[in-house]
């Protein structure tokens, strides 16, 4: 495991140990935050998925009703109005406005439908007959389109959330399975190296102190030896003083001339 994850290329110093510890702490905090974000998003995602499922079913029903009302129109008008409608479409009366909603830092768009009441391209449609049906059909379809817009915003949110959740989960996993073990490995490595250094240092100090002790002992011996010699000398010196044949420096013998 540790071999697969590896460690970071750092020098095993106390400073980088501190850095790594900070990094590990940061990674742990980041991991828990991201995990929570992912959970919040997933909750939202499930909610949206459920609503999409419902909305899709609702859409099926609504579109069926709308299609039926269109059939009523064709029956009442007594002909195909498709061509006329297509040609008279000029300006969109039904428009959407995009808003955004913030879910744990992710902006989800939300479409809101609104109608421009001043625009009416189909004033003449159904003028001859079936005007009422046309009117009803328009209302039915407008409601259907509202459902569709709602569904579209759910679906967009779904796509975006899906993407974001994937990214967040990838990050969570990367931190959990790569960054944290690697940092822990690095810390372990630095610790072991530092311990090794400590042991080396200790051994060296021991060696040094041993050497010092030896030196001191040797010096002591020397001093003692020299003292003993001194004592010996003094002893012999004292004995010498008694001897009468010591030369009398102040005596009457001639000093030898000193020639430079």
């Amino acid at each position: 495991m540790s071999g697969a994850v590896g460690r970071e290329a750092v020098f095993p110093t106390r400073q980088s140990l501190g850095l790594m510890k900070g990094k590990l702490k940061g990674a742990e905090i980041g991991h828990s935050l991201l995990k929570r974000k992912s959970e919040a998003l997933t909750k939202r995602f499930r909610d949206i998925t459920r609503r999409i499922d419902e909305a899709k079913r609702k859409m099926g029903r609504v579109m069926q009703i709308a299609a039926f009302s269109l059939a009523e129109v064709s029956y009442a008008v007594g002909g195909d109005i498709g061509y006329q409608v297509q040609e008279s479409a000029k300006q969109a009366r039904f428009r959407v406005r995009a808003k955004q909603e913030n879910v744990s830092g992710v902006f989800l768009p939300h479409f809101e439908s609104y109608t421009e009441d001043s625009i009416n391209d189909f004033g003449l449609t159904g003028l001859g007959k079936g005007g009422q049906q046309v009117q009803r059909c328009r209302e039915t379809y407008a409601r259907a389109v509202e459902t569709l817009v709602e569904l579209a915003s759910l679906q967009t949110a779904f796509v975006i959330l899906d993407e974001v959740i994937k990214v967040v989960n990838r990050r969570v996993n990367a931190i959990e399975h790569v960054i944290i073990p690697r940092t822990e490995n690095t810390i372990k490595y630095i610790n072991s190296e530092l311990d090794e250094l400590d042991r080396e240092e200790f051994y060296r100090l021991k060696k040094v102190s041993n050497k010092k002790q030896r030196d001191v002992a040797a010096a002591d011996l020397e001093i003692q030896a020299s003292r003993e010699r001194e004592a010996q000398k003094q002893l012999t010196g004292a004995a010498d003083k008694e001897t009468p044949d010591a030369p009398d420096v102040l005596g009457e013998q001639e000093d030898t001339d000193v020639i430079f």
């Binding site: 299609a67 479409a89 969109a92 259907a144």
Partner: peptide
């Protein structure tokens, strides 16, 4: 500035949606 809807559909669907007022040229 995305504010329109677009349709690709058969004639009936398009007619209905246009009646709802989504058509824009």
């Amino acid at each position: 500035d995305r504010q329109f809807l677009a349709v690709i559909g058969d004639e009936d669907s398009v007619t209905g949606l246009l009646l709802a007022g989504i058509g824009h040229v």
